[in-house]
Design a protein around this nucleic acid. Structure first.
Lengths: 149, 149
DNA sequence: ATTTTTATGTCAGGTAATGTAACATGTGAT
DNA sequence: ATCACATGTTACATTACCTGACATAAAAAT
């Protein structure tokens, strides 16, 4: 195996081996390796489904010269995740959303969408308008007991 | 306003005011305040839709003695979010998933689902099985040039 | 007492996900 | 070169989900 690098010094060998190793780890998951038939077996998805998910840009498999799809291991992972989400009842839009959220979790919780005080005042004013009549009925402002069991 | 707390010392007043204020901020968003007609106006959703989302447990409005729904401001917020997600094409399952993810972001990224080496070996073995015949065709092991443009 | 709002249930239509079929093209085997 | 098979593309059929529309009953408002 190490003989794949002939005519170089030992240190050069080490460098090249190291380079190959890190390359392998990083690249092997994005390399187009698998034809659709294999991916079908691995994921238990139909070709129709796989092509449909590509249509929705959830995966982007490479193509051979002959226009055949070639999938990476990352593609397979994604397809397995998609399958799981589908089994949970999500649709394409939902799955896309999930991936968007994963991409930028941004920690922009920014409070649970606090309605501004202006908005709140508007809301309550509107309701007060609707409730005006109640007041005549003797219901004191702030008495909401009738709202609860 | 401050006269709502007679017969107490100034410091006691401050404490009570503080308590009232935090109470107000925390509670006013969960208090059942709004009948469905108002919520329809605020959210521009139909009653049918609102009830459907309750059916899917995305909201849980309180009920009056007469079994009428009474919504909190949080409910309104949730409905507005639901509406936004729906406009983005999500379905009920997707929206539920989003809320689940929000509840426990757990930061359990746990690596991008690395296939174990065993798994990887299994995959490659399977493909090799499929490719056995190709080898006879003179394709050297490891020659994947045909996979790329 | 009458009218209006709300609750619940059912049916129907539109859309999304998938299956299926028809046909063209690429590719290994002979 | 030709055959057989895998894959690609496109069109139509099927199914489930979301929503509108309608019917009926109970509660609340007038």
């Amino acid at each position: 195996m190490i003989d794949n690098f002939p005519d170089v010094s030992y240190t050069e060998r080490v460098v090249k081996l190291k380079r190959v190793k890190t390359m392998t780890n990083r690249v092997r998951r994005t390399m187009p390796l698998l034809p659709i038939s294999i991916v079908m077996q691995l994921t238990e998805l139909t070709a129709r489904q796989i092509r449909y998910y590509e249509e929705h840009e959830l995966i982007s498999p490479a193509r051979t010269e002959g226009n055949k799809r070639m999938f990476s291991l990352n593609d397979v992972d994604t397809l397995l995740e998609i399958k799981e989400y589908l089994e949970q009842g999500l649709n394409m839009a939902g799955i896309k959303k999930i991936y968007n959220l994963k991409d930028q979790p941004e920690n922009e919780k920014a409070e649970p969408k606090n309605i501004s005080d202006a908005e709140l005042r508007r809301i309550l004013r509107e309701e007060m308008q609707q409730l005006r009549s109640y007041e005549r009925g003797g219901l004191r402002q702030g008495d909401l007991s009738r709202f609860f069991k």
